[in-house]
Design a binder for these strands. Structure first.
Length: 204
DNA sequence: CTTGCAGGGGCACTTACATCA
DNA sequence: TATGATGTAAGTGCCCCTGCA
């Protein structure tokens, strides 16, 4: 759809800038509080959790699926690395995991979820944009309908549009809707001086 | 050159858990 | 204290790509 001024790429930009490019990662308020709470104990918690996979063989029953909470520092480093690259090659993954004292799989999962969150955010913004666009189109439609009504009313009376060349009233059949400025005009005018018809200021 | 297969990575969807209001 | 909402780590299954025989 060529009409859409906001291509996905430009949207991606607007999304990535406010949400994820600031030096302190933009976290939901709940996460910030979580991190504060976790500050001390989470360190051992996630170590325990990260070792869980190794002992999953002992899980012939059902082991309680403990949930790892990343520390503030781990999140910060992951975010930083995500800003540089949205995907990691195996080497980068391994080295980042080592740096963070996590398993490569955990780093991989974090990046997967991070990409998903990023995409979700973008979709939400696109949705917002489309809603606004829909609103403006609805308004435009109302305007055009009013104009059609006016034209219908004019049809019973004498034509009021005069030719710019002859100053004579134009027959209704020679009238047309300018697609750019969305006003009724004569076909001849449109063809002879298209520059005089500027589109209205672009909405959103 | 083509084809079938295995392995790996990414993604969509989902679940399970932690936290908060 | 109980509970519903929310955020997110992790599981699962599917698809696509690549390398190889």
């Amino acid at each position: 759809m060529a009409v859409l001024p906001g291509s996905s790429s430009s949207l991606e930009l607007t999304i990535s800038v406010p949400g994820f490019a600031s030096s302190p990662p933009l976290l939901p308020s709940s996460s910030v509080k979580e991190l504060d709470i976790n500050q001390l104990p989470s360190e051992e918690e996630w170590i325990i959790a990260s070792n869980m996979e190794d002992e999953e063989e002992s899980s012939n029953g059902e082991p309680p699926r403990k949930k790892l909470r990343l520390t503030k520092e781990q999140s910060r480093l992951l975010e930083e690395s995500f800003r540089q690259n949205h995907t990691l090659n195996p080497k980068q993954k391994e080295s980042l995991a080592m740096q963070l004292n996590l398993r490569a799989r955990q780093v991989e999962v974090w990046f997967q979820n991070r990409r998903a969150r990023s995409k979700l955010k973008q979709t939400e913004m696109e949705c917002e944009y489309l809603k606004r666009w829909f609103g403006s189109l609805t308004e435009q439609k109302r305007r055009l309908q009013r104009e059609v009504e006016e034209l219908r009313a004019m049809k019973v009376g004498p034509p009021t549009v005069l030719s710019p060349h002859t100053s004579q009233p134009l027959p209704a059949s020679s009238l047309t809707m300018c697609p750019r400025c969305q006003r009724v005009t004569s076909t001849a005018t449109l063809l002879s001086s298209p520059k005089s018809h500027q589109p209205p200021a672009a909405s959103p």
